[in-house]
Simulated assay, not measured.
Amino acid sequence: MSDRDHKARFRPKDRSRGRDGGHKPAWRERERPDGPAILYGWHTVTAALANPRRKIRKLFLTENAARRLAEDNIDTRVPPEMVRPSQIDQRLGPDAVHQGLLAEVDPLPSPSIETLEQDGIVLVLDQITDPHNVGAILRSAAAFDVKAIVTTARHSPEATGVLAKSASGALELVPFVTVQNLARALTALNERGFMTVGLDSEGQDNLAAVKLEAPLALVLGAEGKGLRQLTRETCRVVARLDMPGEIKSLNVSNAAVLALYIGATRLGLMS
């Protein structure tokens, strides 16, 4: 097959134009709620290939990536399409570190609040929109065996692309619970016996001093804005993270790690 044929197969046929008259990046056209999710990068794609719950629609590989998969005896599950690295660059943009792998996949099913285990820790994200931050939080959540991440359908990044890359495979390990209304979701968690703890710089107590109980839901707000008022009012406890240094605030993904460590330690999950 010629390089021209490869490019014709790799590009989506329907490419709408942006305001400047140029074509929008193809990967953005694919990242629609009703379309396939886009995964790229070695850890992200190989984790998806190893997840039997993940349906793989298409797999695009460079020769080097295909060779590495074969050497590691990783099942591609679907016949891969061989492409040049530049073709994946065209799909994702020149700054994406794809390592020669790109997959189109179906989103994983989203469980409901009612099906969550009443054990351990869940994380609740209040309009955290940066996919890098959510991906980093997801990776930490997998490390601390978080049972689920609860987020809103709006004002949150899709579980694809940059978020999945930042999560480095953790997207396959921690379920996402997508809800329409966060306050109602927190109310449901309260009713199911979760101790809902909002993290806010204006919290009355230091989280390390709060008596934490399982099941525990730690609620994180967006950087700058923090928790919304209704979110704060719906949490059973609002606590802060006291820092000994001159800088008193943390990036939200770092705050998540610290809160998870405190929570897991207090609940006896670190042994």
Results as ranks from 00 to 15, higher is better:
Asp20Ser: 08
Val97His: 08
Met1Asp: 13
Glu104Lys: 15
His98Arg: 09
Ala70Thr: 07
Ala256Met: 09
Ala222Glu: 07
Ala148Gln: 02
Ala37Cys: 14
Gln229Ala: 12
Leu138Gln: 12
Arg67Cys: 09
Glu213Pro: 00
Leu59Lys: 09
Gly224His: 06
Gln118Phe: 01
Thr151Val: 10
Gly18Arg: 08
Glu117Gly: 08
Lys211Ala: 11
His98Asn: 11
Ala167Met: 05
Arg11Tyr: 07
Gln99Met: 00
Arg232Leu: 15
Leu216Asp: 03
Leu269Lys: 13
Val174His: 03
Ser2Val: 02
Ser156Pro: 05
Leu59Ser: 08
Asn254Ile: 10
Glu191Val: 05
Leu186Ala: 04
Leu212Ala: 05
Ser156Ile: 03
Glu202Thr: 13
Leu241Met: 14
Arg232Gln: 13
Thr196Tyr: 07
Ala65Gln: 07
Arg67Trp: 06
Val174Lys: 06
Leu241Ala: 10
Asn133Gly: 05
Val78Asn: 07
Asp205Pro: 00
Tyr261Gln: 06
Ser86Lys: 10
Asn251Gln: 14
Ala96Val: 05
Arg139Glu: 00
Pro109Arg: 08
Ile137Ser: 03
Val45His: 11
Leu108Arg: 15
Leu220Glu: 08
Asn190Ile: 01
Ser16Asp: 07
Glu233His: 15
Ala264Phe: 02
Pro52Val: 02
Ala66Gln: 15
Ser253Phe: 03
Val162Ala: 12
Leu163Ile: 01
Arg192Gly: 01
Arg9Tyr: 12
Val238Gln: 03
His23Asp: 10
Met195Pro: 00
Tyr261Glu: 06
Ala259Asp: 00
Ala264Tyr: 01
Ala188Phe: 05
Asn64Ile: 07
Met270Gln: 13
Ile121Cys: 03
Val257Cys: 12
Arg9Asn: 15
Ala255Thr: 06
